[in-house]
Design a protein around this nucleic acid. Sequence first.
DNA 1: GTCTATACCCGGATAGAC
DNA 2: GTCTATCCGGGTATAGAC
Lengths: 180, 180
Amino acid sequence: MAVELIAERGVRDFSLAEASRRLGVTVAAPYRHFADRDELLAAVAVRALGTLEAALAAEVTGGDPPERRLAAIAGGYVRFATAHRPLFETLLRSGIDKDRFPEVRRAAEPMESLFTSCVLTVCGDDPGVAAALAGAVLATAHGYATLLLDGTAGGGVEVSPAAAEGAVLALVKGRSALPE
Amino acid sequence: MAVELIAERGVRDFSLAEASRRLGVTVAAPYRHFADRDELLAAVAVRALGTLEAALAAEVTGGDPPERRLAAIAGGYVRFATAHRPLFETLLRSGIDKDRFPEVRRAAEPMESLFTSCVLTVCGDDPGVAAALAGAVLATAHGYATLLLDGTAGGGVEVSPAAAEGAVLALVKGRSALPE
DNA sequence: GTCTATACCCGGATAGAC
DNA sequence: GTCTATCCGGGTATAGAC
């Protein structure tokens, strides 16, 4: 399928034309499978979300304490960004219209509920803290992942799944400082 | 100058042609001022870094305690991303070759030293913790900023400068959990 | 410094044959 | 399902006149 081949290239300047060339077919061929470029990209995004959710779910199977599981999710998020960079890029930068392709939004739901349930397990007693912590963890994991992707990080900074996990543990530990 | 006009549009699909049109000149005009498209983008990036550095420096003028100043930097970073979205986008997504335009790298240095000195003030006693904290704060601020930019954040999550500041305070407070 | 004109390249998309 | 052929639009960049 054409879908896999996109992974060879980033989405930044992904084009059906180039993908077709790499596949050894002409530019007209993809239109037998997808209405247009965006529809193909949406299909890739759905696949990416499935893979990501599976990866995150696999991270939390152990009998670890709640904060470790939350950290594992963040680590898994960053790990996914490096291991499946093109898929992750598709999720972030494809510019898919989620109103036109609601299946993309739907594909993200299992992952989101996994995440929020994990946050609630850490601090289910206080919904206010839970919301703030959820945002902080999301931002941190997302931040590490994008730093990895863009290579934006300056010299001495370590950017890795392990670093993301540590940061989440620190957030949990110091969560009383979060605003509500 | 043409430089300002880029701010009207994102960098995602920024083109000299469209910018020229908006300026009311022809597409040939910019080439009197810049060798090519990338050179213009690099000039914008340098300007953006200057503005960002000034904004962050203004955040830390007060006599606040160290961790508050670090939080203020993160908050300022996110604030900048919203207030000067096109400039921030240029920094992240212009795809500038920093080897070709070393002035871009140089323009980032003042900001970086401001940041690292601020981190060291918070925990100068331990270089290992300082490095880990620097990474975590950077990732968190960057994460909030990019979440804002992309609108990636799901429904209930609050993404704001204040949230970023709170997260940094939490990181500082729980920094003993960071890996070294 | 800006214009006109032009050349070139590339991507998206469709029609119709096989 | 894929091909050939084709159209359209848009962007980059240059040459030469004003």
